[in-house]
Design a protein around this nucleic acid. Structure first.
Lengths: 198, 198
DNA sequence: TGGATAACAGATATTGAAATCTGTCATCCA
DNA sequence: TGGATGACAGATTTCAATATCTGTTATCCA
């Protein structure tokens, strides 16, 4: 049988994540990754053109893991307002859980994200698309009154920055966090709402 | 005549700001400040118990200069929605102008604010109070329908974080900034609005 | 012949000794 | 006697030599 373990980009990314977890972003080197894979560092450069591109790929993996469960909610069915609320709560709670469970790794990913701004931008576009999907449903259902779905989707994502953007992670320990988030959510949903028929 | 120049806290703060401008936050020392004042650094410690407290006082001065013109708007008269819009635009444009005019000094103040989180918290409370003042007027005028003025005020401040919080300064160069801010503002104002009488 | 390697040059990081800084205090002086 | 001073100890920063890392390439091998 003697399985020959081949060096794939996927395997490199896994090990890189592990190395980042153990050493932190500042200290982790390509040589460390190669050592953990038991290959020369030149071999890593065969699969990724630079250290920056390797890091970018790790960032992308992480962000994809964030957006996947949200996509499920966005593409679900049922009343749009409830769905939007669930989507927004899921996004913010996921981020807040991450920082709470493993603050060091979160800090690592934050720094990584700052470098890989192209990847982050694409991620934000995807999130805005998901909100837009829900808003579009809401307009069809007559629950929302929105003139520009795309602009509103971005406005909502912007509005909750404080509760999902890693730069604000330091403010997530406040006792009144949930209360304030609820107030913001209520304000946004009221802003989207179509006037009641009577 | 021979005016004796006395060493006042105010004069120390002025010179400290100047030293910060010239050397940057990381390099500026209490000794530098004392040198610029032509006194021993021990004299500075007679007026401020520590370097941290000196920096805090500088941060406070800066934040007070931000909130003063906003207080004028908040305490003005006229229709609350227009006043709120003006207040929010003034806050965000002031911050964005600062970062555009003197990015280095802005970075210095950002780092300073991160240290002096107590002072920053008080500043945010003051801003929320100002918004609450406008909201209260709006409710009285029948323009806004808000159950908890204080909570709504904080929700609004939170919602525009992306456009006034220095942590997002990197995103203020985007071409669609004004457009996106307008969309968010419209959404928030719609959320505050009392249903039209008919 | 695709994929791994070791050797290499230039860039970056580490390290430890020396310099500087922070905060205190006994002393001075107007 | 309130306010300034300079000397001081311990903490922090700087700087330059040394080590390590990044990215390339000629070479190897299965």
């Amino acid at each position: 049988m003697n399985e020959v373990v081949v060096l794939t980009p996927e395997r490199i990314l896994e090990v890189t994540e592990d190395v980042l977890r153990r050493f932190g972003l500042a200290k982790a080197t390509v040589v460390d990754v190669a050592r953990a894979l038991d290959v020369s560092h030149g071999s890593v450069y065969r699969h990724f053109p630079s250290k920056a591109s390797l890091r970018e790929a790790v960032a992308k993996r992480w962000l994809d893991r964030v957006s996947a469960p949200l996509a499920k909610i966005a593409e679900g069915s049922g009343p749009a307002p409830a769905r939007l609320e669930r989507w927004l709560r899921t996004l913010c709670l996921a981020k807040q859980k991450k920082v709470c469970d493993d603050p060091e790794m979160f800090a690592t990913y934050l720094a990584l994200a700052r470098e890989a701004c192209v990847v982050v931008k694409a991620h934000k576009e995807r999130l805005a698309d998901q909100i837009a999907t829900i808003l579009y449903d809401g307009v069809k259902q007559g629950a929302f009154q929105v003139t520009d779905v795309r602009a509103s989707a971005r406005a909502i994502l912007d509005a909750i920055s404080r509760y999902h953007h890693p730069a604000h992670a330091g403010e997530w320990k406040d006792a009144d966090l949930a209360e304030r988030f609820d107030a913001l959510l209520a304000l946004l949903l009221k802003g989207l709402e179509a006037p009641r028929k009577r």
